[in-house]
Design a protein around this nucleic acid. Structure first.
Length: 477
RNA sequence: GGCCCCAUGGUCAAGCGGUUAAGACAUCGCCCUUUCACGGCGGUAACAGGAGUUCGAACCUCCUUGGGGUCACCA
């Protein structure tokens, strides 16, 4: 049988990293087995629907490099792929399930439901309407009493299945409640729509979060009542913010789009989340989509939750950034130059040459480059460098010398370098000491995206000399 | 609380009865170097605890502890 997997998000207007990983695994699994990957929108909860959410889902998947074989805008013959458009289908199947004894009509009012409690004080339906006679049901239906359709759970025994990652899961049927399958507004609940759709759409493998691990037996019972074949399940542990908290919308940083805006490359994000909860056989961690498809398998999927480590994603991002050409980097970096103090004032291509190999995420750029426009008094302690054997005293000599030798030359990289080299020899200090001090004197920063000569050239002669003089005054105090 | 699940360094994780318990990120040190970064080399750092089973347990069993999930006309 051809493998078919699906990603079935609710259109809540937000593409969470955890959801994206679920989609990714479903996609990788399908591709690995030459199967199909479908997108289905689960919008049966009309109250949670957010305008434009479907576009967000589409855009995210597309940027992430996850392509869809069938979905709302790409019919594969088993549509529609939006649940609200399938209302009549669920209705039909719900009625059939009632015929088969797997479900029943329930006319209980909210007030009655609220009084129902089990020994632990937990609300639980008591199968009251299951005992209604055919005539009573027909009469209520005819007189238009609002109703829902509930799943008829067995009261004894246990229901079990074998999950692809967790192995055998079994739950006592006594734990299972007669959940609502069809709401009074005629919409199905997740419990029902999911089963009906997965079956009708030919889904063979269901990937989803572990929050469904222990309710899956319920869904399986529906498959059984219909006489349908149950799919395989791959439940995925959650991605956490820390040991206790799940990564979530509430903490704001779990959104794919946010990471993009921070200057993460989609391929780095995808690569990183693929590794969160799954590990490849070998030791290679930088993996392209093609490699992921080739290597993905359940054996590597982890059972325990994992904490999202942005630091490691930064590292991966840096790897991806470095393998771009400087031209490509410049294009990616431009929006971030625009956002910085140097906006419009420097040659971005020149800046990119220096920054390309030093940037981990693009949003670091402004902070790395602002010193070009921002120069003020700094700590003289910066001149103390153990290995260079420099201090404020050496610096004074070096800066004086630099000022002297740079005044009358043409400001090219070669000339500046030659002048500083010669000057340091004349002063009897090391070239490294000279360059270190000059770099500091013209930037005021411990760390800069280039050496003295490169920065000097970037600043130009006038500004370089101005800064040298400024620093000299600082050093002479 | 009932039920389900999970548990290897700070983090991601390999490991499927016999290993000096991989590797990566982070961290620290050294080297390279015109700063920073890159790169190279090296270090610190883990089997939650307790009982079994076994000649032998990170791996199997049980208990404890800790954590997560779930118990909706939400998905």
């Amino acid at each position: 049988m051809k493998v078919r997997t699906r990603f079935a998000p609710s259109p809540t207007g937000f593409m969470h990293i955890g959801n994206l990983r679920t989609a990714l695994y479903a996609y990788l699994f399908a591709r690995r087995h030459n199967g199909d990957f479908l997108l289905r929108i689960e919008d049966t909860d009309t109250e949670r629907y957010v305008e434009g959410a479907i576009d967000t889902i589409y855009n995210t998947l597309s940027k992430a490099g996850i392509d869809i074989d069938e979905g709302p805008f790409k019919d594969g013959g088993v549509g529609p792929y939006i649940q609200s458009l399938r209302k009549d289908i669920y209705m039909r199947y719900a009625e059939e399930l009632v015929q088969r004894g797997g479900a029943y009509y329930c006319f209980c009012a909210k007030e009655r439901l609220d009084t129902l409690c089990d020994a632990n004080g937990i609300k639980r339906y008591d199968k009251h309407c299951l005992r209604l006679s055919k005539e009573e049901i027909a009469a209520k239906l005819a007189s238009g009493v609002p109703y829902v359709i509930r799943q008829n759970m067995p009261t004894e025994g246990e229901s079990s299945y074998v999950d692809m990652v967790f192995g055998k899961i079994s739950v006592p049927c006594s734990e299972l409640e007669d959940n609502v399958l069809l709401k009074s507004d005629g919409m199905p609940t997740y419990n029902f729509a999911n089963v009906v759709d997965d079956h009708l759409m030919g889904i063979t493998h269901v990937m989803r979060g572990t929050e469904y691990l222990s309710s899956t037996p319920k869904y399986n019972l529906i498959y059984d009542s219909f006489g349908w074949q149950r799919p395989q399940y791959m439940h995925l542990p959650p991605i956490m913010k820390d040991a206790q908290r799940k990564l979530s919308k509430r903490y704001g940083d779990a959104n794919f789009e946010d990471f993009l805006n921070k200057g993460y490359l989609p391929e780095a994000i995808v690569n990183y989340i693929a590794l969160l909860g799954w590990s490849p056989k070998g030791n290679e961690e930088k993996l392209s989509m093609a490699e992921l498809i080739d290597m993905f398998g359940v054996e590597g999927v982890s059972k325990s939750s994992s904490i999202f480590d942005e630091q490691k994603m930064r590292w991966l991002n840096a790897l991806y950034l470095r393998e771009k050409t400087t031209e490509e980097f410049c294009i990616l970096a431009t929006p971030f130059y625009q956002r910085s103090k140097v906006a419009g004032k420097y040659d971005y291509a020149l800046l990119s040459k220096l920054l390309h190999q030093r940037v981990e995420i693009l949003s670091d750029i402004p902070g790395m480059v602002d010193f070009l426009e921002e120069f003020e008094a700094y700590e003289l302690a910066l001149y103390e460098h153990k290995k260079m054997k420099t201090d404020a005293l050496v610096a004074r000599t070096a800066v004086q010398g630099a000022l002297r030798c740079l005044k009358d030359i043409e400001f090219t990289e070669e000339q500046v370098m030659a002048a500083l080299t010669a000057e340091s020899e004349g002063l009897g200090i090391k070239k490294g000491q000279m360059l270190f001090c000059v770099r500091l004197a013209i930037t005021g920063k411990a760390s800069t995206p280039g050496g003295a000569v490169e920065i000097a050239e970037l600043l130009g002669k006038e500004e370089s000399l101005r800064r040298l003089e400024f620093s000299l005054r600082l050093l002479e105090k």
